[in-house]
Simulated scan of single mutants.
Amino acid sequence: MPSAAAEPPSHGFLLPIVGGAALAHLLNDMIQAMLPSIFPMLKAGFSLSFGQIGVIALVYQITASLLQPWIGLYTDKHPKPYLLPCGMVMTLIGIALLATARSYEMLLLAASVVGIGSATFHPEASRIARLASGGRFGTAQSTFQVGGNTGSALGPLLTAAVVIPYGQHAVAWFMVAALAAIFVLYRLTVWVLHHGSAKAKGLARNHAPGLDRAGVLRAVIVICILMFAKFVYIASFTNYFTFYLMERFALDVRQSQMFLFMFLAAVAAGTFAGGPVGDRIGRKAVIWISFLGVAPFALALPHVGLAWTAVLAVLIGLVMSSAFAALVVYAQEAVPGRVGMVSGLMFGLMFGIGGIGAAGLGKLADTYGIVWVYGLVSFLPLLGLATAFLPDTRGKQR
């Protein structure tokens, strides 16, 4: 039986639509990346501990993760196209709160409001990218995801240039990005209202049957293990790499932000490659390469000097990031007809695991030091061995 990727689509790959979703993802994740990038400034300005920094990350990411699968499940049955621009309005409000916060409690509120905006964005925008894929699901998902990773890379760079020199109020400049995203998402919503329903019906007719109940259960368990390994390790970089560099190599905040930008730029490049490669050689092969390929670099990172730290961080970002698009499309193929729910669950797992990981790593850093934490997390990619238990989706990828 042919897979969804192998069936003739009713339209080609719609680059303007997939590109628009990727651009919105860039703007959305650029705003999100700004939050951990100002953690050193908030830590000093509000006299926070590593544990309190971890709780801010947890509140934001848990807010986003808990809502995403429910939003996706609801909109699978009851489409709400205008939810996309409305969700970005919440992000706009969260930025304003963050720029004007005067207490730790206000920082937590701002983080939660930005999280609500993210929860509405990811499942719905991922659905649009799939609708416009023309059957090239991996390529569309990786293009969409690379927009987010590019935004995540630009966030620390813009923060170092705009926010760090001028203080907390300069966070308000990111409202410009939110306004631009609202415009892009409105245009995508218009396309969905005029063309998207026909595309959705075509995909619904052509999808493969997916896994049986036992196969889905086994796939979910393995995916959770892989997501835990990937996103706890990624959380160690996005939230604490700057602190690691400052403590181990005595860099200042702006210098450390440049290293973080290099890592996140490598993540964006690796993500872009993962989807098209998965369309050709299969999702499981990409997942194997992603986890086991990065393990030697991860194990070596805590034991090298500054120059090799930069090199290894780039290699880790390139190799490990290729897995996410493959995991998302694999899950969509395993449970066909539930694009919103699966996308929300996958992005929700990403945020939830990342948030719990950030909080846990913060507590460990307070107790044992940030350098010790990097020695511990270097073993996480070895959990990629669980890929051996991942069932094949019905219909091999061509």
Rank of each mutant, 00 (worst) to 15 (best):
P9T: 05
S10Q: 10
H11F: 06
F13D: 00
F13K: 07
V18L: 06
V18P: 03
A22D: 00
L23Y: 09
N28S: 12
Q32N: 12
P40C: 08
M41T: 04
G51I: 05
V55I: 15
A57S: 15
V59D: 05
Q61K: 03
L67D: 09
W70D: 05
K77E: 12
K80D: 03
K80V: 13
L83W: 15
L84R: 08
M88S: 07
V89G: 13
L92F: 15
I95D: 03
L97S: 09
A99M: 11
A101S: 15
S103P: 04
E105Q: 13
E105C: 01
L107R: 00
L107E: 03
A110L: 12
A110R: 13
I116T: 04
I116A: 14
G117L: 00
S126V: 07
L131P: 01
A132V: 11
G134E: 12
G135I: 05
F137Q: 10
F137T: 02
A140T: 08
S142I: 03
S142Q: 06
F144S: 06
N149I: 04
T150I: 13
G151I: 12
S152C: 01
V162A: 14
V163C: 01
Y166G: 02
A170F: 05
A178P: 03
A178Q: 11
A178C: 11
A178S: 14
L179Q: 06
F183H: 07
V184P: 07
Y186F: 15
L193Q: 15
L193M: 14
L193K: 15
H194Q: 10
S197P: 00
S197Q: 13
K199H: 15
G202W: 02
L203N: 06
L203W: 04
N206M: 13
P209W: 06
G210F: 04
D212A: 04
M227T: 14
K230R: 14
F231E: 14
A235P: 05
S236Y: 02
S236R: 06
F249D: 00
L260W: 07
L260I: 02
F261L: 07
M262R: 09
A265T: 10
A266E: 09
A266M: 10
A266R: 08
A268P: 05
F272V: 05
G274H: 09
G274D: 04
G275F: 01
G275C: 01
R283S: 10
V286E: 10
I287K: 01
W288M: 10
I289W: 08
F291T: 07
P296D: 04
F297W: 13
A298W: 02
L299R: 09
L299P: 00
P302L: 15
H303P: 02
L306V: 13
A307S: 14
A310Q: 10
A313R: 05
A313G: 15
A313Y: 03
V314A: 08
L315E: 04
L318E: 08
A326P: 00
V328A: 03
V329C: 06
Q332P: 00
E333D: 15
V339Y: 06
G344T: 09
G344R: 13
F351R: 00
I353F: 13
G355M: 11
I356H: 09
A359L: 07
G362V: 09
K363M: 07
G369E: 01
G369I: 04
W372Y: 15
G375L: 08
L376I: 14
F379V: 12
L380S: 07
L385V: 13
L385H: 07
A386F: 14
T387Y: 01
T387S: 02
P391L: 10
D392F: 12
T393H: 02
Q397N: 12
R398C: 00
